[in-house]
């Protein structure tokens, strides 16, 4: 019941501070010249932040329903298909 789906307050504050630190880190990382890796680093930090929000704030971690986890995984999978197949098309075209 409700006790299982809500983490203690201490966890929430820790996650909140981590997310703020992640924001500062991504701004700092953007000022460093990493060549092509700037975008990869920015997206990795964003994905870590999104994962923390989903797991702890949206309570996927303690979800009693396996169906919820299935929906989340399916969502990411279909988003990946959307991006991957579009890029497979545009990436292999002869742009003028």
């Amino acid at each position: 019941m409700s006790e299982h789906s809500s983490s203690p307050l201490k966890t929430y504050v820790t996650i909140w501070l981590t997310l703020l630190a992640g924001t500062a880190l991504t701004v700092y990382a953007a000022t460093v010249d990493l060549g092509h890796f700037n975008a990869a680093v920015a997206l990795t930090i964003a994905s870590c932040k999104a994962l923390l929000v989903a797991l702890f704030f949206m309570h996927i971690r303690g979800a009693s329903e396996k169906l919820v986890k299935l929906v989340v995984i399916a969502t990411v999978f279909f988003l990946f298909i959307l991006l991957a197949l579009s890029m497979a098309d545009y990436g292999t075209r002869a742009w003028s």
Binding site: T26, V27, A30, T31, D33, N38, A42, I45, A46
Partner: peptide, 9 residues
Amino acid sequence: PLLYLIDRH
């Protein structure tokens, strides 16, 4: 990051 942080260095 996608809109504000392109090539900021």
